[in-house]
Simulated scan of single mutants.
Amino acid sequence: MSPEGLDNELVEAARAGSTAAFARLVERHQAPLRAFLRRTCGNWAQADDLAQETFLAAWSAIGKLESGASVRAWLCGIGYNKHLSATRSAGRSRAREASYEAHRPASARPLSDERLALEAALAELPPDQRACVALCLAADFSHAEAAQALGLPLGTVKSHVTRGRTRLLQVLGGSDDGS
């Protein structure tokens, strides 16, 4: 039997609900689809993810495949559309991030070394203390709002913020003269 004839039989069986037939289609076409997507997007991991998304979409749309149509071409078309969607989504994400960075006040943009030191210092705090510091000092929550969000007593939140702030200032070499 020709490869196209086998594909047609497998498509018909998959349309009838045979997951085994669809699995055979996946086996037959996954290597060429992945190779196409790797060449198209230039990122092997992304290509593998897109191939999986392609096969999921193909399973849902197997009934729309015209009889006698090339399964490989159909899968590559779905994969290419998945690639285009992912590219557009990544572009929108980069644009949002750039817009966010552009509209942040300069004082809110610490230098990268400062940011790394702050992240490392935060990681050293106990989890409850880190959460209180993150909410009250970084996210401008009141102590009462942080207590409600974290389900902690108000006094505990105040204590955690005070201790966490002191510890961060020690690690970062600042002084605590503004308390």
Rank of each mutant, 00 (worst) to 15 (best):
A117W: 01
R92S: 06
L125E: 01
R39V: 03
T54G: 04
A98L: 11
V133E: 01
D128I: 02
D48E: 10
S2Q: 08
A23N: 05
P3A: 13
L152W: 02
W44S: 14
V157R: 01
D7H: 06
G79T: 04
D48N: 07
L169A: 12
A73D: 12
A108R: 08
V26Y: 02
R39G: 14
T87P: 02
S85K: 14
S112A: 15
G178H: 12
E145W: 05
A144D: 15
A106K: 14
L122Q: 07
R38I: 11
F22L: 10
A108Q: 03
N43L: 08
K64T: 15
A146G: 05
A134E: 10
C41D: 03
L169M: 10
A117K: 07
A20M: 00
A139M: 14
P110C: 00
A23V: 06
R115G: 11
I62V: 15
A23L: 05
Q30H: 13
S67P: 09
G79W: 00
A57W: 03
P32R: 07
L172K: 01
P32F: 05
A47H: 02
I62Q: 02
F36N: 04
A14E: 04
A123C: 12
A147Y: 00
L135N: 03
A144G: 12
E4K: 08
R94I: 09
G155V: 06
A16G: 08
R92T: 00
L84H: 06
E27I: 00
D128L: 10
E145I: 09
E9M: 12
G151V: 12
A90G: 07
G173A: 09
G174D: 05
L50I: 04
N43K: 13
T156F: 05
S179H: 11
A131I: 00
V157Y: 04
T54W: 02
Q46V: 13
E101M: 14
V133K: 00
G63R: 08
L125Q: 01
H103Q: 15
Y80P: 00
S107M: 05
V26W: 01
V161Q: 01
C132L: 08
C136K: 01
L125M: 08
V157P: 01
G77M: 08
L65T: 00
A149R: 07
A45P: 05
P126E: 12
A149F: 03
A90F: 06
E53C: 10
S99Q: 07
S70A: 09
S175V: 15
A69Q: 08
F22H: 06
S70R: 09
L56A: 14
M1E: 10
E124Y: 00
G164C: 10
R115F: 13
F22K: 07
L137Q: 06
G77L: 09
D48H: 04
T54L: 07
G68E: 14
E145S: 15
R163A: 12
G42A: 08
A35G: 08
Q129E: 15
